[in-house]
């Protein structure tokens, strides 16, 4: 469930990157305040561990399909929220680079969805209270499963929101939610059981390890509920504010900014309200500007909604196709030319 660059609008991508960077900066600062030297290599090696562990598949009972380890929850339990968040961000960065999971712009979203929720929300608000002071296996299972399910539900719901806000997909909200949430409920349950299994195994085999590792974490238990709630409220307001500003200007906010910067987009004279502005920009930037989105049959509603589509021009569409073919042909030619040149060279 990695968000992908291709589904993102620049506004949504940039906003989530900004949010993620802010949290990352905060986490680094908090860790630096009272860091134990031991933590840097430990974080790095545990990141590599999560990465390697995620490459191992296991069979989900009764289905025959396979799942893998989530990671965020285990890290939070071992390292505390700040270090766990940074490690999770690193793991996702390496995955984005080496596996191209999602892409680099969507990385902000993915760190948000898979890092912030488990480390900063679910761990302190669900895992710790549910576990309490006991280390009984049943408690570990309940806490881990609940946490994993909630974290993944939040994560997948965010994917839905991020995609819809970006406006590249036609999926209606309800259908999208129905598509994402149940699948992730199942994945969450499995992940939760595996997390519980790993934690109890380590607890049973070497109880000293979890203690010694946790003792080297700087401020494991000092994350207060109040702070989290306030931080999230502030982040939500900022994010909401920025996004709605973009949205009110244009569904593709940055595109509008780019247009402005390039000076191609003039506002219409009768610029009352947002709708005409939107329309004007849409006309300037839509695929082959002179197209008409002709209603097909029953979709007459849409015609009323989009009364301003200009008439169709078969000439332009042909020009686009011919142009694309020529451009791609030239690129292939350039590529092959360089390759041939290189080969002769060596």
């Amino acid at each position: 469930m990695h968000m992908a660059d291709a589904l993102l609008s620049p506004a949504v991508g940039a906003t989530l990157w900004a949010g993620t960077a802010a949290v990352g900066g905060y986490a680094s600062k908090r860790l630096k305040e009272r860091i134990d030297d031991r933590l840097i290599p430990l974080m790095g090696v545990l990141g590599a561990f999560i990465f390697a562990a995620q490459m191992i598949n296991f069979t989900i009972p009764g289905t025959g399909s396979s799942g893998h380890l989530g990671g965020g929850m285990i890290l939070a339990v071992i390292l505390g929220p700040h270090a766990a968040f940074l490690v999770m961000a690193s793991v996702l960065t390496v995955q984005a680079l080496f596996f191209a999971d999602g892409g680099l712009l969507a990385l902000g979203c993915n760190i948000w969805n898979l890092g912030i929720y488990p480390c900063y929300l679910v761990y302190p608000l669900i895992y710790k209270p549910l576990l309490g002071k006991s280390q009984k296996q049943s408690r570990i299972i309940i806490a881990s499963v609940t946490s994993a399910v909630v974290a993944l539900q939040l994560g997948s719901f965010s994917v839905v929101l991020e995609t819809l806000l970006s406006g590249k997909s036609e999926l209606p909200f309800g259908a999208f939610v129905l598509l994402m949430q149940p699948i992730h409920l199942a994945i969450g349950l499995v992940e939760g059981f595996v997390t519980a299994g790993v934690i109890s195994y380590v607890h049973g085999a070497r109880p000293d390890v979890i203690e010694s590792v946790s003792s080297s974490r700087p401020l494991g238990d000092r994350v207060s509920l109040k702070k989290i709630v306030i931080t999230f409220a502030v982040l939500a307001v900022i994010t909401g504010g920025v996004l709605s500003w973009f949205a009110s200007t244009n569904p593709d906010g940055l595109e509008w900014a780019v247009e402005k910067a390039y000076g191609r987009s003039e506002l219409p004279e009768k610029g009352q309200g947002i709708a005409p502005v939107l329309k004007a920009i849409q006309e300037k930037t839509a695929f082959l500007p002179d197209y008409n989105f002709k209603p097909t049959g029953s979709a007459s509603e849409k015609e009323e909604a989009d009364p301003g589509w200009p008439g169709i021009d078969a000439g332009t569409s042909a020009a686009g196709l011919v142009g694309a073919a020529i451009v791609l042909g030239m690129i292939v030619f350039v590529g092959m030319g360089i390759r041939a040149f290189r080969r002769r060279d060596t």
């Binding site: 860091i35 840097i40 790095g44 990141g47 590599a48 690193s90 390496v94």
Partner: peptide, 14 residues
């Protein structure tokens, strides 16, 4: 942040 980059390098190394 330096801390983030340091541990990212450790991640890669291991």
């Amino acid at each position: 942040p330096a801390l983030f980059v340091s541990q990212l390098l450790f991640l890669y190394r291991y």
